[in-house]
Structure formats: C-alpha cells, structure tokens
Design a protein around this nucleic acid. Structure first.
Lengths: 161, 161
DNA sequence: TTACTATCGTTTCAATGCTAACGATTATGA
DNA sequence: TCATAATCGTTAGCATTGAAACGATAGTAA
C-alpha cells in the first residue's frame, strides 16, 4: 500500500490504521500483481500464437508429462473447477490436441489423453514458454530464486493451495 | 553461424533437459499456484457473500481510495483489459455500487465513481478481506514477508508488470 | 478550416470460469 | 439383495476475460 493511501483508509474504515497489517497487504498485493503480469505476458507473447490460455497450456503440460490424466486431477492441478476443465477439454478436443477416454475399471472417471498433434504443439511451445519463465525471473540471482521459491512453497503448503 | 543463432536453434528445436532452468520453473510454478490459491480462497471465503470477483473487488477498492477513477487507469491497476473493466463496471452499476461519469474536459474519458452503497459494502468487506490477507501469509515471519515482498517487487519492476 | 492521426470506452464474439443441479456409476450397509 | 450415500463428469446459466472492430472525441498539421 502506498503511504498516501493510509490516511484515506483510516478515514473510511472503522478499522483503525494501527490494526492493519501492512506487511501482509504488501505481500498479497505484490504476489497477485506478479502472477497476473506473468500470465498476461505468457499468453500474449507465447501462447497467443496457438490460441491457448494459461490454463489450457497447463492442462496440455500435465497431459504431456503424464500421458493420461483424470479430469478431477487436472482441476486440482490447475486450481480451477471441474466444470472449467470440462469446457477447456471441449475446446482442446475441437483443436484435436486431446481426447476423452472413459476408465474401464470405474466408468465414472474420464481420462484426458494427449494426441500426436497435441504432443507436437507442446514440443514447439514449451521451449518458448520456458524462455519466458527464465526471462521473467532473470532479475533474481539463483540464490534469490531458491529463496522466493521456498517462501512461496511455505505459503502454498500452509494454505493447502 | 553466430553464437546467439546456435542458442536460439538449440532452444527452439531440441531443448534438451540439461538446458532447462529448474530454478526459474520452480519460481514461476510456485508463484502462480500461490496467487491462484489466494484468489480462490478470497473469492470463496470473503467475496462470494456479495457476489464479487477478485477483479470486481480490486476495482471497488480503487474507487474507495480514489473516489473517481478513469476506466483506463482501472484496467492498468487491475491488470486486465479495458473491455473487462467496461463489463465489470456494467455489473457493478447494476448492483448500484458505482456509476459512470463522462469527463467534461475530455469527453472521450469516462470516470467511474463509487456510490454510497458501494462505500458501505467496502466498509463491511475490507476488514474481512484484510483478515484473509493476514491469514494467508501468517506462516511467514515479518522479516520473511518483507523479503518476499522485495523480491516480488523486483520481478514486477523488471518486467513492467 | 479541413484532413489526418491518436486516444478513449464500448461492443461483439468466442473462450474461460464458477456454482448448482443433474445423470451415471460405484460404494456402503442393513 | 436392495436402498442409500458418495463420487464423478457434464450441463445450464451467468459473470469474467481479451482481441479486434467500432464510433466518438481530441489533437495535429497543412
């Protein structure tokens, strides 16, 4: 929070300024802004060529690694709802990048499988995506990268994210 | 062949495992996961009561602080497109939380203004939101919070996020 | 003044995203 | 066995999101 914002908030909230935890606000603000910027950059500079969103790409990535993944696990991995996975899978299927396959042992479960075309897209796209990853955090040293990763991981674990 | 040409080709065609920067991958992965979890938690535990999304709330927050903000500045602040601001403003207007006001000096510019109802919602909502902020990063010490904020800020500044 | 250019917000259209409801399937327990 | 509960993915309905096209307005140059 900017210094000049303090007074305004103090005037408008019942909660006095002393009770506001400025450290928490700063972490949350910077965390979300960095992630938002990251996503926008990647979608604009890397993923737009193939008309993929960040979430679509992360699903394709999972499929690339694991070959075949259940819908529920995809949702958990991407941090979105099952409905979103269902919708995105429809889009990816239309582009022939993946297909659905009902599990034989438990017919409630649907697995999503990468197609050859999907694999080719990932083989071309991932190197470019990785370039972007490196670029985004290039201002930090390796030690700082390790440090921020560990801090972020603590937040993730502690909140079950 | 120039050295940088070699690198480009190497990155775009083969991209062997050895050339992957695992530190960058870890930072990006954890950064986005933490932000995603943060957003989901806030929308679920705090904002859902009032049917607000993270972006809607961040717009209301700007209006709360600045009283009246141009559409373009709202987009820049929230990290979304002007079209998104336009749509969300429609929704917020429908809920009578804000209204539009054309600038007299430059009639191309539209300012969004908080209503009394909007202010009341923020006065009730912000303390709860802040509770969530504190909770999310509560596993980190103040020193660690300062540290991660500074690292995130460097990433933000270096990328113009 | 009159063109031309730039900027701003909205609209259009398709995709993403969530909640809740639903149908199908499997597990459980009397 | 059979009724009930639990789990899974999809669907319906609506809000969010962005790229591109668009109209309106302002700035600029001849």
């Amino acid at each position: 929070m900017l210094p000049e914002e303090k007074d305004t908030i103090n005037q408008l909230t019942k909660a006095p300024i002393e009770s506001l935890n400025l450290h928490s606000i700063t972490v949350v603000t910077n965390l979300y802004r960095a992630a938002q910027g990251l996503r926008n950059k990647m979608e604009r500079e890397v993923l737009a060529k193939h008309g993929l969103s960040w979430t679509s790409f992360s699903i394709l990535y999972d499929l690339w690694i694991w070959e075949s993944v259940e819908t529920k696990k995809l949702a958990l991995s991407a941090g979105v709802s099952k409905a979103t996975i269902s919708n995105i899978t429809n889009t990816l299927e239309r582009k022939e990048l993946c297909y659905r396959k009902v599990d034989n042992r438990d017919r409630r479960i649907t697995c999503v499988v990468l197609t050859d075309k999907g694999r080719k897209v990932m083989e071309e796209l991932y190197p470019r995506f990785h370039e972007g990853e490196v670029e985004v955090v290039s201002s930090l040293s390796v030690e700082e990268q390790t440090l921020i990763s560990n801090l972020l991981r603590r937040v993730i674990r502690e909140n079950d994210f």
